[in-house]
């Protein structure tokens, strides 16, 4: 077996980062979400067809932590929507490569949506393509690209994937 790209402690920390992120975006405490990112981060939610065909359009495309904070504010204060629970189930991350301390990982995810008084449905399915960096506050996402197979969005996406 090839030598692992990262040591056991780093692997543990990355697992923890993924688990903490999923827990945060399912908690309805939207202000937690931007804190998983670096200041100059990239967060994109992109349909798979655009990703694979090289079209740059994203469903959401944020290029700073400030934009994520603006989104969190929008969710809470300006975007009218039917409230729903969401539940992320995230697969084990694959470590693809490590370059200059930047750890490139990927993981499959499925998000279930449960509207009040309604059954739970599969809402958004795809994979995270991530770049993780070490910071004084621990590992953070420098980039998180959510490429989703569920190209036909069931009406709207309000909360972070």
């Amino acid at each position: 077996m090839a030598k692992p790209l990262i040591d056991l402690q780093t692997w543990f920390d990355i697992q923890q980062l993924y688990a903490d992120y999923a827990s945060a975006v399912d908690s309805r405490q939207w202000d937690l979400w931007p804190e998983f990112f670096t200041e100059q981060c990239v967060y994109k939610l992109q349909p798979r067809e655009n990703f694979e065909r090289g079209f740059p359009l994203c469903t959401l495309s944020f290029t700073s932590k400030g934009m994520l904070k603006d989104r969190a504010y929008g969710i809470q204060e300006t975007l009218f929507h039917d409230p729903y629970y969401q539940r992320h189930v995230v697969g084990a991350p694959m470590v693809l490569r490590v370059e200059d301390g930047r750890i490139h990982t990927e993981a499959n995810y499925a998000v279930f949506r449960t509207k009040l008084d309604k059954e739970s449905t599969v809402f958004n399915v795809g994979r995270y393509i991530d770049t993780i960096v070490q910071t004084p506050e621990g590992f953070k996402f420098a980039e998180r690209l959510c490429v989703y197979d569920s190209e036909m969005i069931p009406n709207s996406i309000i909360y972070p994937i």
């Binding site: 065909r53 079209f55 994203c58 036909m152 969005i153």
Partner: peptide
């Protein structure tokens, strides 16, 4: 020039 697509199903 095409920048890309978004699709949604509205009930």
């Amino acid at each position: 020039t095409i920048l890309g697509y978004n699709r949604q199903r509205i009930p």
